Amino acid sequence: MSFTDKAKSKAQEMSGLAKERIGDATDNERLRAEGAREQSAARAQQAGENVKEAGRDVRTSFEK
């Protein structure tokens, strides 16, 4: 995962957190749910990329 992708994913996660908190403060269930969804999507993307990186590391260690 490139630095740009990591930054975009983190920004999406922070945006979701802000929406969720604003939804909590205003009792807006739709905004709260949208924020939670954005956070989940960003975290899933980050987890997938971490798995890819771990796979590359394992492959590299066997090539040595």
Rank of each mutant, 00 (worst) to 15 (best):
K8V: 01
A47N: 02
Q39A: 07
A7K: 01
Q12Y: 00
G48W: 05
S9W: 04
Q46E: 07
T26K: 05
A18W: 07
N50H: 12
R37K: 12
A7D: 00
S9N: 11
E49N: 08
Q12W: 00
D24F: 09
L31S: 09
L17I: 10
S15R: 13
K8S: 02
E20Q: 15
K6D: 00
I22L: 11
R21Y: 03
E49Q: 14
E34T: 05
E13F: 15
D27A: 14
A42G: 05
D5W: 04
G16H: 03
G48S: 09
L17A: 14
G16D: 01
R43G: 05
I22K: 08
G35Y: 06
A7Q: 01
A11C: 01
Q39F: 01
Q12D: 03
S40E: 14
N50T: 14
G48L: 06
Q46C: 00
K19N: 05
G48D: 07
K52A: 13
A11F: 01
E49K: 11
E34V: 07
G48H: 09
K52L: 11
Q46W: 01
A42K: 02
A18H: 11
E34F: 04
A7W: 00
N28I: 08
L31I: 07
A42D: 03
A11T: 02
R32V: 02
A11M: 01
A25Y: 06
E29I: 14
A11D: 00
R30T: 14
E34C: 00
I22Q: 05
A36Y: 10
E20F: 13
E20T: 15
E20K: 15
D5S: 11
Q45I: 02
A36P: 10
M14N: 12
D5T: 05
K52V: 11
A18K: 13
E49A: 11
K10A: 04
R21Q: 07
T26H: 02
A44N: 10
S40F: 14
R43K: 15
A33R: 03
